[in-house]
Design a protein around this nucleic acid. Structure first.
Lengths: 312, 312
DNA sequence: TTGAAAGCGCTAACAT
DNA sequence: ATGTTAGCGCTTTCAA
């Protein structure tokens, strides 16, 4: 409310406001002695610069926004780590909003980021309509986890086809020929189509998909972070020996997967984040409106305890 | 960069800046006709209000900050839902930062929130030193998930003792007398102490704690969201019948728990969030510096498929 | 090196 | 009901 201002600091240190401004931003053209006394005064008053005022005056604020479409998706935490790490390397701060899984709120959240006039934004897994994303013209924007055909927005995604191929190849190398693929998610997705193509037969869906797998299957591929490891629990409960009777690979890499020793395949989320933020910050610095990039990150297969050779 | 400003809209609509300002904030004292033409002009130009400028001029911005100590903690997503829901009811927006589990980054993140001069902030599970939190004087602040002895900061927490008692009572009612309690987390915590008191013997810790449980135990209590359901997997793998041989209750309620049908006990995170945001917004509105509140939310036991009567 | 002055885009009395 | 006038706290020329 009545926080001390630059002017208060200037008064206390007996200098002009401009000088204090220079000191606060670490300028090198201020005498050592004066600098000390300004910093001293600032500390005594508990002064903290007002970022709204600074941003308004300077036109840049050193903060980029991140929209997380859904915080419940565990992979987003790992993606955020990548984003944050790269941002920190460039001394840029992050501010997040979320769409809570609903396109309407998401739109709202993106508007907030834009209205704040942050330096740019990364949209992580946006579900809103492509045309609404494209409407953002004035600020640098990168979309992560979804491939947009846009004239000016960069996209960073995992490589679904490569992931599916990698998983199938891994199982094939272990001797598996009959592979069932399950999607516990609700709607068709590019990912589902990629797996469908790699496996060669239709993906099974719905809550009981696990039990509808054709009898002779010796391996199961499950799509979907959140419920992926639950498939292991279900198999074990049913008395299956994993990987003796059946091998299991989950697409996606939830935190629980490591603890439960589930073999997974997924784009490394940390890398996705770093790449997206790197791209964004490049755009923020040299604001040349180069042609949009479509970057792709190769999948990573983490072999743990749910895959093994097919039983003869 | 060169987004249209209030002035551009005013020029295009042929009115004064003040009138446009009124219209943008939905004032009722503008003629129907003029309002229409202003909105029309704004739409044509793609005008969006600059929140920095608005906040600077108005002294309030309609946004509160949320610090999430660690986004990887799945419960935080649920807490955030509660926060967001209550904020939406009051037409207030949320902006998040995270500490990524490190006190130093956390401190930084809180400073960012403060420097932005948001209307207030909720700290979710902060790990930073109490004295550093207490240093925040000028803005309304609520701490969630940690109990602070502060002269002016509100705290909202779950009731650890009640949760432990509830879990033990539930098992006792099923006939369990020998109950082992495991904490897969690294450090002692108030929660661990609460369970220790309720169970009556020391909590077992470390990665292999599960196998060090005294032989005659018929029930296991596991503390810790992330690894809680992994305990079920481990038991099943070892050939245990759950709940036939041993019953399991996890403290905390990760997303996977429902899918894996694990019985859990925990403070309802959604409620924690709603309560914290409600308290904060009260402080923001009537800025009377009332004495700090210490609010507590009772635990919720969700009975699923891992608890059953003791085998005779 | 330091200071004075003019904004940044908006709100909030105040006048009309 | 509508326009005028000061700021909000800071950065940034431009002089000194």
């Amino acid at each position: 409310m009545d926080d001390p201002t630059l002017e208060d600091v200037a008064a206390r240190a007996g200098v002009s406001r401009a000088l204090v401004s220079l000191v606060m931003r670490g300028s090198s053209k201020v005498g050592r002695e004066r600098r000390e006394s300004v910093l001293e005064a600032a500390r005594e008053l508990g002064y903290r610069p007002n970022l709204m005022a600074r941003g308004l005056a300077a036109g840049q604020i050193g903060i980029v926004g991140v929209l997380l479409a859904d915080m419940h998706e565990p992979v987003n935490a790992a993606i955020h780590d990548g984003l944050a790490e790269e941002a920190a390397r460039h001394d840029v701060r992050l501010l997040l909003t979320t769409g809570r899984g609903r396109p309407a709120m998401e739109r709202q959240a993106v508007d907030d980021l834009l209205d704040l006039r942050l330096d740019g934004a990364v949209l992580v897994g946006p579900r809103m309509r492509a045309s609404e994303i494209d409407r953002v013209v004035h600020r640098p924007l990168v979309v992560l986890g979804r491939s947009l055909r846009s004239a000016r927005i960069d996209c960073v995604t995992g490589d679904d086809a490569a992931a599916a191929a990698r998983a199938v190849a891994h199982l094939a190398a272990l001797g598996h020929r009959r592979i069932a693929c399950l999607d516990l998610g609700s709607r068709p997705s590019p990912l589902r189509r990629a797996y469908e193509a790699a496996v060669g037969n239709p993906v099974l869906t719905g809550p009981d998909a696990l039990w509808r797998a054709p009898g002779p299957s010796t391996a199961v591929l499950v799509l979907g972070d959140t419920t992926g490891t639950a498939a292991l629990t279900a198999l074990l409960r049913a008395g299956c020996d994993v990987p003796g009777d059946v091998s299991l690979i989950v697409h996606g890499d939830p935190p629980g997967a490591a603890a439960a020793q589930v073999t997974t395949v997924a784009p490394p989320p940390h890398e996705l984040g770093r790449l997206a933020m790197g791209t964004l910050l490049e755009r923020v610095r040299d604001r040349a409106p180069a042609k949009p990039r479509r970057l792709t990150v190769p999948p990573l297969l983490t072999e743990r305890a749910t895959t093994g050779p097919v039983r003869r």
